[in-house]
């Protein structure tokens, strides 16, 4: 049975008064990830916004073990930790590598690819805020088409982002899922499902960022939901190679309804200078991805 909001556990593994920005979606993500793992997890975190949330020595704002790793070695560090825990017989602990989009798609990709190839027993979570947010919004490999960052042309990025779940799927790992903080019960269920699978598991999470996307902090949840409702972010999971849409994306595919992308990006300052042609190109890119996903869902 799918979890509902009232059946989510009450115990928290994140303390208030941390350094994350007001309205940061990582707080929502981390709370529900740790709830799903019941706190029985060891995290490996590279340089990222999440390190900022965890805090500075000698205090920490999370009550689960966290290792701060080097930027390119997150998955390698997690692989070693998983091997060590297994040798000690601590099989109830899940090793979670939690990195941003830079630590996953750009700097951390070789270690992640190596860990996936070795089949290391880790859960790799990428929270995708679509740029290097804690260093000043530099462009990353996951920044969407037409979005402006501090290192893109003034009118916005000219390349579409990488398709990380597809890259990981090519490694033949047992579980790949996408989830969004706008749908926390879906996120909770997927983390629990990933917890019970052995091998390398990958989760790609949408993480709206008020500071980098230039919208008001109160709209974080609305942004996460709009990203899904416009088809910009597709909720899906791939279990042993079988792809299926889940949650809101599944109901949207059944109803055949989808909001235009402009509704999602209208309130985001990072798209404010994008030309109409660039936004049309973005809409076309979203349409193509959505149709491919629905087709794949129906045929697999």
């Amino acid at each position: 049975m799918a979890t509902n909001i009232l059946s989510l556990p009450e115990q928290e593994f994140m303390l208030p008064g941390n350094r994350a920005c007001a309205g940061c979606s990582i707080g929502i993500i981390f709370r529900h990830v740790t709830k799903a793992l019941d706190g029985k997890a060891a995290f490996v975190v590279p340089a990222s916004c999440f390190t900022v949330l965890c805090g500075m020595y000698p205090s920490s704002s999370v009550t689960v073990p966290i290792i701060n790793s080097v930027f390119p070695g997150t998955a390698a560090c997690a692989s070693g930790l998983a091997a060590s825990l297994e040798r000690q017989g601590k099989t109830d602990m899940t090793v979670v590598a939690m990195a941003g989009d830079g630590g996953t798609a750009d700097i951390g990709i070789q270690a992640l690819s190596g860990a996936a190839e070795r089949g290391a027993n880790i859960l790799f979570i990428c929270y995708d805020n679509e740029a290097y947010m804690n260093t000043g919004t530099q462009r990353s490999g996951m920044t969407p088409l037409a979005a402006r960052t501090s290192t893109t042309p003034t009118l916005g990025k000219i390349q579409p982002p990488k398709d990380m779940p597809a890259i990981l799927e090519a490694h033949g790992i047992p579980y790949i899922a996408t989830a969004s903080p706008g749908y926390p019960t879906d996120l909770y269920d997927k983390v629990q499902k990933a917890r019970d699978i052995r091998g390398t598991r990958y989760m790609h999470l949408s993480a709206p960022c008020p500071a980098g996307w230039h919208y008001e902090a109160k709209d974080t949840v609305a942004m996460a939901k709009l990203a899904v409702e416009t088809g910009t972010f597709i909720l899906a999971e791939t279990v042993e190679g079988v792809y299926r849409l889940t949650g809101r994306s599944l109901s949207m595919a059944k109803a055949g309804k989808r909001k235009p992308v402009r509704e999602f990006i209208r309130t985001q300052g990072r798209f404010s200078r994008s030309s109409e042609e660039a936004l049309d190109e973005l809409q076309q890119w979203v349409d193509n991805r959505w149709e491919a996903a629905v087709h794949r869902h129906e045929t697999s």
Binding site: G17, N18, R19, G55, Y57, S59, S60, S61, V62, T63
Partner: peptide, 9 residues
């Protein structure tokens, strides 16, 4: 590091 509320003040 040890957990504490109000890590960021």
């Amino acid at each position: 590091s040890w957990p504490c509320a109000g890590e960021g003040g």
